[in-house]
């Protein structure tokens, strides 16, 4: 049994918390989507390592 009296302020605060939760959830989804887009479009592809100096060049 709750003894807390509901205040109009609680309603506003609840609305604010829900709003913030939605914003944070959307941000997580956005970063996830952005990461997938970057990976699939090759922006984050690992560049091949430069060719190592061949043995012949070393011996010369």
């Amino acid at each position: 049994m709750s003894f807390r009296e509901e205040h109009e302020l609680h309603k506003r605060r609840f609305g604010r918390n829900v709003g913030l939760g939605v914003v944070l959830g959307s941000f997580v989804a956005l970063v996830f989507g952005l990461t997938i887009a970057k990976v699939t479009s090759g922006d984050l592809a690992i560049q091949p390592a430069p060719q190592s100096v061949s043995q012949n060049e070393v011996s010369q």
Partner: peptide, 24 residues
């Protein structure tokens, strides 16, 4: 959690518990 959680100072000052729409 009791009613003491309401920031009475802020309420007296007229701000402190704005709705989400106010921030938007």
């Amino acid at each position: 959690m009791s009613d003491a959680s309401i920031n009475t100072k802020a309420v007296d000052a007229g701000y402190g518990d704005a709705g989400f729409g106010d921030y938007f």
